[in-house]
Design a protein around this nucleic acid. Structure first.
Length: 197
DNA sequence: AGCACGATTAACT
DNA sequence: GTTAATCGTGCTC
C-alpha cells in the first residue's frame, strides 16, 4: 500500500486494512498473513489513544508521517504493532489485532512453539511474537522501497462480513471512548482469504 | 525518585 | 473464569 492509503481518515484505514496482507521480511524469510482484526486510535481527544498524553518520546511516531510503524512495549513483555495514519498534525494509528497466517508457516510455528495454528496470530502481541516484530522496527517506513515490513493488496472483505465493536482492553478509559465501536473484525471464513481477489 | 497501571498472554482451576 | 508474569511510561511528590 502506498502512502496515500494511510493518509485517509483512520476509521477508513482500519476498515480497509481488513483482508489486506501484512508482510514481514526477516532476512531471507518472507512471513505474511491476512489482516482480520484492527482498532482505530485517533487524536489527543481519544482517551483510549496513547496520544491523549500529547507528544512524548513514546508517541512521537504518531506525530509523524502516515504509513510508518508505531510499535510499543507493554505489560512488561509484549510488543504491539500499529500503522500511523492521517497528517502529522493529527496523531492517530491503527492497531493490528489479528491476522490469518498465509506464508512462512514453519517460521511462525517455530516462534509459537507449543501453540496450535489457531492461536498463532489471533492477538496483537501474538502477531509480533510470530513475525519477529519488535522495537527495532518502531518508526519503520511501510512505504519504503526495501522495507522489512509492509502491507499488500489482499482479499476485499464485503461490508456484510465486517463487524464493529468497542475496542478491547480499555478497562479504565472513560466514555464515550471506552465503548465507541472502533474495532473492526472480518467475519469472512478464513479459508476464503487465500483465494485470489 | 517513586509508583500505579497497561491497546496482553498463557497457564491455571 | 482467574491470575501471574514483567517493565516502560507518564504522572505525582
Amino acid at each position: 500500500m502506498q502512502r496515500q492509503f494511510f493518509e485517509m481518515p483512520t476509521l477508513i484505514v482500519a476498515r480497509d486494512l481488513l483482508g489486506k496482507r501484512l508482510v514481514r521480511l526477516a532476512g531471507e524469510q518472507r512471513v505474511a498473513g491476512y489482516i482480520v482484526e484492527t482498532e482505530a486510535y485517533r487524536g489527543e481527544e481519544d482517551l483510549g489513544c496513547h496520544a491523549h498524553a500529547g507528544l512524548t518520546p513514546r508517541t512521537r511516531i504518531m506525530y509523524g508521517l502516515p504509513g510508518y510503524a508505531y510499535i510499543y512495549f507493554t505489560y512488561g513483555m509484549h510488543w504491539m504493532l500499529n500503522f500511523v495514519t492521517e497528517a502529522p498534525s493529527f496523531p492517530a494509528a491503527v492497531l493490528i489485532r489479528a491476522i490469518v497466517a498465509s506464508e512462512g508457516l514453519e517460521f511462525i510455528a517455530s516462534r509459537r512453539n507449543g501453540q496450535p495454528p489457531r492461536s498463532w496470530t489471533n492477538g496483537p502481541a501474538k502477531i509480533c511474537r510470530a513475525m519477529e516484530i519488535n522495537g527495532a522496527l518502531n518508526g519503520a517506513d511501510l512505504c519504503a522501497e526495501n522495507s522489512q515490513l509492509f502491507v499488500e493488496k489482499g482479499k476485499d472483505i464485503p461490508d456484510s462480513f465486517v463487524t464493529t465493536t468497542p475496542r478491547v482492553g480499555l478497562k479504565n478509559v472513560v466514555e464515550p471512548w471506552k465503548s465507541i465501536p472502533w474495532r473492526f473484525v472480518s467475519t469472512l471464513p478464513h479459508h476464503l482469504l487465500s483465494e485470489a481477489t
